[in-house]
Simulated scan of single mutants.
Amino acid sequence: MTILAPRPTTSDTAAAVVRRHWRGVRELGFIALMYVAYAASRVFADDSLAPARDRAMRILSLEDNVFLDVERDVVSWFVTHDVAGRLAAYYYASAHYLVTAVVLLWLYRRRASLYPHARQVLIGSTLVALVGYLLMPTAPPRLVGYPDLMALHADSGWWGEAASAPQGMGWLTNQLAAFPSMHAGWALWVALAVTAATTSRTIRTAAWAHALITSVVVVGTGNHWLLDVLAGWGIVFLAWRTVSPTADEQTVLTPRERDLVAGGSLSGA
Rank of each mutant, 00 (worst) to 15 (best):
A139M: 01
A206G: 10
I59C: 01
P141T: 08
H153G: 09
M34N: 08
W189Y: 07
R241N: 10
A118N: 09
A197Y: 09
T195N: 05
S244M: 08
T100Q: 12
D248W: 08
S265P: 14
L188K: 10
H153E: 10
S265Y: 13
P140C: 06
D259I: 10
I235D: 07
V121M: 02
T10P: 12
D54L: 00
R53F: 00
A32Q: 13
L87D: 12
L192W: 01
H21I: 13
M34A: 11
L87I: 11
L253T: 12
G168W: 10
V219C: 10
G168S: 04
P6S: 12
D248E: 12
V99H: 07
V99P: 02
I213A: 04
A95P: 03
D148Y: 12
D47M: 03
W225D: 02
A139E: 00
L192R: 01
W186G: 12
A95D: 07
A56M: 01
A262S: 13
M136A: 00
R110M: 14
A211D: 01
P140W: 03
R204W: 02
H21D: 09
D69Q: 08
H183T: 15
Y38C: 10
W22K: 11
V216P: 02
L62K: 11
V79R: 07
S215M: 12
L176R: 02
I31F: 02
H96K: 15
L130T: 01
T254M: 09
V252Q: 15
S48G: 05
A206D: 07
R55F: 00
A187C: 07
H153P: 13
A165S: 11
A5Y: 04
T246Y: 07
L176Y: 03
R26A: 14
A193C: 03
S125V: 00
S41Y: 02
L253W: 14
G222R: 15
P8A: 04
R58V: 00
D73W: 15
Q120I: 12
P147L: 03
S125G: 01
M182C: 03
P8G: 05
V218S: 03
L192C: 04
V217E: 06
W240H: 07
L238A: 09
F67N: 14
L227V: 00
V43R: 07
I3R: 06
R204V: 05
E27N: 15
Q167A: 08
L62G: 12
P141Q: 07
H153I: 14
D248P: 09
G220D: 12
V43W: 06
T205A: 06
R111D: 13
V128K: 02
V102G: 05
A32E: 15
W22E: 14
D148F: 08
D228A: 02
V236K: 01
A231H: 01
L114C: 06
R201T: 13
A177R: 12
L143V: 01
T214R: 08
D73R: 15
P180C: 04
V252A: 04
A37D: 00
R19Q: 07
M1V: 09
T80Q: 06
Y92M: 15
M182I: 14
D69A: 05
V102A: 14
L172F: 11
V70L: 13
G264N: 11
V66Y: 01
S156K: 06
A88V: 11
L143N: 00
E249C: 04
A247Y: 02
E63L: 03
V229A: 02
H210F: 08
R42E: 10
Y146S: 08
D148R: 07
S181I: 11
S11A: 07
G160H: 06
V131W: 00
